[in-house]
């Protein structure tokens, strides 16, 4: 893989892992990270749509990103996306922290191309490659929005 810095400016990003793939999102796209939330399942939805969580008097839809991408359910924290992206929560396997890193360009591969909003940039931390993801593109992708169960649809 050829790694070439695309810009001189650094990116503050949140690093997380879904199954065996590592991802990096802009820190501004995330409002909060929840360790545990009480999620109420919603009947007639996809299996990767975990349900609704009550948070500060508001309902937060929570989607299992691993189940949605790799058919592998995640068991970690929930990324509470910023409000400007709409109410949405993504369950990942592990949130590795925030880092200010210089993104580098990198072509998508088969493992990362399945994720809507995956960009051709990534950051490196501790020897790991974190693919950068545009969460607004992700949450606006039709596949992500179609939470109704297929048979029901």
């Amino acid at each position: 893989m050829t790694m070439k810095p695309t810009a001189v400016e650094y990116l503050s990003c949140i690093l997380f892992r879904v199954a065996k793939t590592h991802w990096a999102v802009d820190v501004a796209a995330v409002q909060r990270v929840h360790e545990q939330l009480t999620i109420h399942a919603v009947p007639g939805t996809q299996s990767w749509f975990l349900g609704l969580a009550q948070l500060d008097g508001e309902l937060l839809p929570v989607t299992d990103l691993g189940a949605w991408v790799n058919q592998t359910p995640c068991a970690g924290a929930i990324l509470h996306l910023h409000a400007r992206l709409g109410p949405c929560g993504l369950r990942v396997d592990e949130v590795l922290g925030t880092q200010t890193l210089a993104p580098i360009s990198a072509a998508l591969d088969a493992a990362t191309s399945v994720m809507p909003g995956a960009q051709a940039q990534m950051v490196q931390h501790n020897g790991l490659d974190f693919r950068q993801v545009d969460l607004s593109a992700l949450v606006q992708s039709p596949a992500f929005i179609a939470v109704r169960e297929a048979s029901t649809a």
């Binding site: 949140i14 995330v30 909060r32 990270v33 360790e35 922290g97 925030t98």
Partner: peptide, 8 residues
Amino acid sequence: LLALNSTI
């Protein structure tokens, strides 16, 4: 998590 959220 608190540090993460504070950072965020």
